[in-house]
Write a protein that binds this DNA or RNA. Structure first.
Lengths: 168, 168
DNA sequence: TTAAACTTTCAGTAATTATTGAAAGTTTAA
DNA sequence: TTAAACTTTCAATAATTACTGAAAGTTTAA
């Protein structure tokens, strides 16, 4: 299998993984393409490589820029915008994790907190059971959140390294 | 806000979280409903509570049974099947994590390994860069996998507790 | 047996999500 | 300026995913 096929396989696999985890396939594929490009590439390059439309390419790039896991790169003597991927796996993985936690988990934690407030004083057995269930989930998720915050915010992933050393 | 509304809010929130993470909304809602039900409930109860069809209810239940996070429960003197949810958050969270890792992450790790094999001997600069990128991702993901395997398989979550104690 | 009670399946349809592509908007070199 | 080069937007459409409901299948009590 030649290099081009291997690259293709990487892009496809990455796109599939993304869509299984709620990340748009094109977005994941654009990141994959940028990760394996040896030099900055333009929107037109991306459209050609992935055979996607200009609109799709543009929106995927914007989202990746929002995530902070790709960068714009100016090429001297060219008006086009070029893009490069963050190469440090730790850095981009952390950014994705932080963003998803903040956007999707934190709001759920907030709701769980509200539900506890609303039902704290319910005296029926049913109400007490509900409170307990919500409390259990909130406590468990809260611990994971605190842990992940510490790991994700630790300087250069030192905390993760420490944990890895400890358990392996 | 009364208990019924709180329960409804829990079900909706859980369904939304599921769909953001690639888990069918109905499946997540059925688990939520079972989690907050004080007694075993039947397919008909679920259809009524979530206003979904028999087919949808049946398929959602089957998937949750597959995951191993809900159980069938026979009720004496009744031919219907009833269901209850696993109440221990740790237990069901681990099962979901194990299943998703096995179904979605492990195959990706396999592909990354194949890609390394295929490109190990490529001598071009481009080939070497590709190998390095794939290797970095594989190494990083591999470490997380090893760690999560240990945490997920540790007896009663003791390893997670140990880690929590260590860092908090 | 058999027929009522219940569960499962799956083709058809609905709902959601992703993508296109052309028009509008912006920037820049001359 | 202005017009060419480029980027962004978004209504229309395609593709995917989810859901329904009725028919087929299964189990059980009599």
């Amino acid at each position: 299998m030649d290099l081009e096929s291997s690259k293709q396989k990487f892009i496809e696999t990455w796109g599939l993984l993304g869509s299984e985890w709620g990340i748009n396939r094109s977005v994941a594929q654009v990141q994959a393409l940028l990760l394996i490009s040896t030099e900055p590439i333009s929107t037109d390059d991306i459209m050609a490589a992935l055979t996607i439309s200009r609109g799709n390419a543009n929106m995927s790039l914007r989202q990746l820029l929002d995530y902070g896991i790709i960068y714009k790169k100016l090429v001297a003597g060219d008006r086009k915008e070029y893009f490069v991927a963050e190469r440090d796996v730790w850095k981009w993985a952390v950014k994705i994790a932080q963003m998803r936690k903040q956007r999707e988990i934190d709001p759920v934690m907030k709701v769980l907190g509200e539900l506890k407030m609303e039902t704290k004083k319910v005296t029926s057995a049913e109400g007490k059971e509900f409170y307990k269930t919500v409390n259990d989930i909130e406590a468990f998720t809260g611990q994971l959140c605190t842990l992940s915050d510490k790991v994700l915010n630790s300087h250069r992933g030192e905390l993760l390294l420490k944990i890895l050393k400890m358990v392996m």
